[in-house]
Nucleic acid binder design. Structure first.
Length: 798
RNA sequence: GGGCGGUUAGCUCAGCUGGGAGAGCAACGGCUUUACACGCCGUAGGUCGCAGGUUCGAGCCCUGCACCGCCCACCA
């Protein structure tokens, strides 16, 4: 046995063994209360980041812990087809060859994407394995595999038949680069410097003008009205009259609407329902025409007349020039404001009126709101329930159609007469007229429309499977903050609508790792950390420990420091086992013949209870810290050191092995590999540690106090340098653990002074009438206990 | 614009309902002790972001400010 523990090789060997022996396998027929964790399926288009490792680590700790406790565990792996993300990635690859997705044709694209998946798809699962994640890999699902596809079709038809899905010509977020609609959540707002132009719209009767402020002068061509606030005194006389739109010189009405902000600009707003969301709503309410001058490519379209084909910037300049020449440009000023961009390609979003498929949200949201309000679904940390509710209570209809070729194609067929057939498998003929000339809807569904089904589609729904029966609802989903609306909210309402039950009990919102500069990690910016740069040198156990250690804060900075701590812990355990094995293996048996043995068993048991509480509260950081101190301070520095003089005795080693076994069990969920490796070296092991039973409670309370007072005394004498004045067990422990100075005649004065200072402080507190009167009784009692303890120390010092 | 989290030792972070400022790493000193020098024992290091307030007592509660990070957002 090498004195230096080397995870390389050991870890992969165990990962293979566990998987080959079926120990990761989930079985719906197995006994035990289910514990089901659906690992959020990563995008097929990427590889893992260190942030994914953090998420996977905390899920796996819980799964391994519950597996040892006898729960029927399912840890479900899978991939997400990630519609637009994958579409955009492939687009970037093709662009290098001067091609685009649409050049391939729909069938050609399908072939290309299959090849692409085979090339990149395997990477993620191998990274899961490298971290030691005990997922049931045999059950790996893909959000576009055959069964899942069926589930999505069924879901669409269900919602359509219930009247929740409708097709409408409304304003949407349009990405001119990807040429598809996006949902509100796929739009990122970024501040941009712009110019606010003040343009005069002459009154039709020539008696003056109304000045509006705009950042998009090109859209003036599509203006159909000017609006002011109904209570705005400045414009009271012009409401109901007409103004002349510059450049196109069209007469449009001046209307009043309370959505206009009086304070902004001049208080007058040009209304362009075809190219602005607010204007669109105002336009619909006032029955205004929706003119369009910008096309799906973001350029001016034919309706723009002489400006057709120009960019909006150029067209805007022409309009501004036109106004300036006629004295209708009042002023221009710099203006910084948030502008929507496509989250995938960062192109500026173009609001356009185009027909899309929508999901009506209000009725679906209601039970999903109740689920969280009634705490059937619990968020950790709790504050995220508020975030979820705020969004859900104000949710708007969801645009679910996308004009790309990667995703679940919408199960709607049109016949030449325009009849619509909506069924979950391809129909022979039109449901209304029987025509066999059917054309399927070109659009595909938003990725998240299908992800929403993950907790039950992975279990076989819509079929009635044993898995679905046994493992739905699940137990827990762990995810990052930004996924709350995209995925969590949608899983909850989908599960309630289709199955009638919440998809899980706990939603764990975990930390987001920042890089060492405190910046968000991003692959595209190159600010991320490759998991393999950590896993390769440090090993999975150390990485898991290090990542969990830092989960107490919301946005921790990644640091190798905590990973290093994990590596030391693994090495320490390894060497502790070496000490016992090299002295001689014996059958483990708790034979607590002396105070040290009873103490360490009690310490381990106390930590077990504390660790269970930590895990129940998802407090991984404190849990692993506890294990570190149990191992280093209690097990190695005190216990093993104190029994060294008696290590030749078989009874002593039998207890030591028994204590080590318990320690390994507590550590296994966090550091599975090193603990399993040590476990196999221990005498007469019949089962793998991964499926060994979690330790039962054992109480030795009195013993904790006994050795802790010995420790306290030992620390005092150790600090003073004076040879022990202790007797009995304490003296033995002291002699074994502490090596006093040669002469044993250190100076006690400093120690006496320190203790006296504490006594003075405690006495002062207790003499404070207001403290005794106002403080909590426990606080006063605690103070009295401290005083008694220090008085005892003073006595011990002589 | 609205909201959330953070600011504690050189670094990464704990600090539970207000009652003696902590850990790990780094630094410094000492240890060839029957495992581990990736070890052991010890030392030093902090006006707890700033300014007020409440309280017998504030890192913790309240108000304001500054800075960092994040989420949401149709004021053109």
């Amino acid at each position: 046995m090498d004195p230096l523990y080397k995870p390389q090789g050991v870890e992969q060997r165990w990962q293979q063994t566990w998987e080959e022996e079926g120990l990761y396998g989930a079985d719906p027929d197995a006994p035990g209360e289910p514990f089901v964790v659906m690992h959020p399926p990563p995008n097929i288009s990427g590889s893992l980041t260190i942030g994914h490792c953090l998420q996977l680590s905390l899920e796996d700790v819980l799964v391994r812990y519950q597996r040892m406790r006898g729960r029927n565990t399912l840890f479900q792996p899978g991939y997400d087809h990630a519609g637009i993300s994958t579409w955009a990635s492939i687009g970037r690859t093709l662009a290098q060859e001067g091609k685009s997705q649409r050049d391939l044709g729909r069938d050609g694209f399908d072939a290309y994407v299959q090849e692409w998946l085979e090339r990149y798809g395997g990477k993620i699962m191998s990274q899961f394995r490298l971290l030691g994640a005990s997922l049931d890999y045999r059950r790996t699902r893909f959000t576009m595999d055959e069964g899942y596809y069926r589930a999505v079709m069924r879901w669409f038809v269900h919602l359509y038949e219930r009247g929740f899905i409708y097709r409408a010509n409304r304003i949407v977020n349009w990405c001119p680069h990807d040429k598809t609609a996006l949902s509100d959540l796929e739009v990122e707002h970024e501040d941009e410097d712009d110019t606010l132009s003040y343009v005069r719209y002459p009154l039709a009767d020539g008696s003056g003008h109304v000045t509006i402020a705009t950042v998009r002068p090109a859209t003036i061509l599509a203006d159909v009205a000017v609006a002011v606030h109904p209570e705005d005194e400045r414009y009271r006389d012009v409401v109901g009259t007409e103004v002349v739109v510059p450049f196109v010189e069209r007469l449009v009405p001046v209307i009043a609407d309370k959505r206009v902000e009086q304070e902004f600009g001049t208080g007058a707003l040009k209304i362009t329902p075809g190219h602005d969301p607010t204007d669109f709503e105002i336009g619909r309410d006032h029955g205004l025409e929706e003119l369009t001058v910008i096309g799906p490519d973001g350029l001016m379209n034919d309706a723009a007349g002489e400006l057709a084909g120009l960019t909006q910037e150029e067209a805007g300049r022409r309009v501004i020039d036109w106004a300036a020449e006629r004295g209708q440009l009042e002023k221009r000023e710099n203006y910084r404001h948030a502008v929507g961009h496509c989250e995938r390609c960062h192109t500026r979003i173009e609001p356009l009126v185009v027909p899309q498929w929508w999901l009506a949200m209000e009725e679906l949201a209601a039970p999903a709101i109740a689920a969280v309000k009634e705490e059937r679904v619990r968020f950790t940390p709790e504050r995220f329930a508020r975030v979820y509710l705020d969004w859900m209570e104000n949710v708007r209809d969801w645009c679910i159609s996308r004009q790309i070729w990667w995703g679940h194609r919408i199960p709607v067929w049109y016949c030449p007469d325009g009849h619509v057939t909506v069924v979950d498998t391809e129909p022979e003929s039109c449901a209304e007229c029987g025509s066999t000339e059917l054309r399927q809807e070109e659009d595909v569904l938003d990725t998240w429309f299908s992800s929403a089904l993950y907790p039950f589609a992975t279990l076989g729904w819509p079929d009635e499977t044993p898995e679905l029966e046994r493992w739905y609802p699940g137990s827990l989903v762990a995810t990052a903050r930004e996924i709350i609306f995209l995925w969590i909210a949608r899983m909850i309402f989908s599960g309630l609508e289709l199955i009638g039950e919440d998809p899980y009990v706990d939603v764990l919102i975990h930390s987001t790792l920042l890089n060492s500069e405190g910046k968000r990690m991003s692959r595209t910016l190159g600010t991320g950390i490759d998991p393999e740069d950590v896993l390769e040198p440090y090993g999975a156990d150390a990485t898991r420990y290090g990542l969990l250690k830092v989960t107490s804060s919301q946005d921790p900075r990644f640091s190798f420091g905590t990973i290093e701590e994990g590596r030391k812990l693994a090495n320490k355990l390894w060497n502790a086992s070496r000490l016992l094995l090299m002295t001689g293996a014996v059958e483990p048996e708790a034979l607590p013949s002396s105070v040290e043995e009873r103490w360490i068993l009690a310490r381990i048991d106390a930590t077990r209870a504390e660790l269970e509480a930590d895990l129940a509260a998802f407090d991984f950081a404190h849990g692993v810290e506890r294990l570190y101190h149990l191992t280093f301070d209690d097990f190695c520095d005190w216990y093993l050191e104190s029994i060294k003089p008696r290590l030749e005795e078989e009874d002593v080693r039998a207890t030591a092995f028994a204590a080590l076994e318990r320690l390994l069990k507590l550590l296994h969920p966090v550091m599975p590999h090193v603990t399993e490796e040590i476990w196999t070296n221990l005498p007469s092991r019949e089962t793998r540690l991964i499926v060994a039973p979690w330790p039962e409670s054992q109480t030795w309370e009195g013993e904790l106090a006994a050795i802790e007072s010995a420790q306290t005394a030992a620390r005092i004498y150790r600090r003073s340098g004076v040879r022990t004045k202790l007797e009995g067990d304490s003296a033995r422990i002291f002699e074994a653990v502490v090596r006093p100075t040669e002469d044993g005649q250190g100076d006690l004065e400093a120690e006496r002074a320190r203790v006296q200072k504490e006594i003075d402080r405690a006495e002062r507190m207790l003499a404070n009438e207001k403290f005794v009167a106002n403080a909590a009784p426990e606080a006063v009692d605690a103070e009295r206990e401290k005083l008694a303890q220090y008085l005892a120390e003073r006595d011990a010092l002589g």
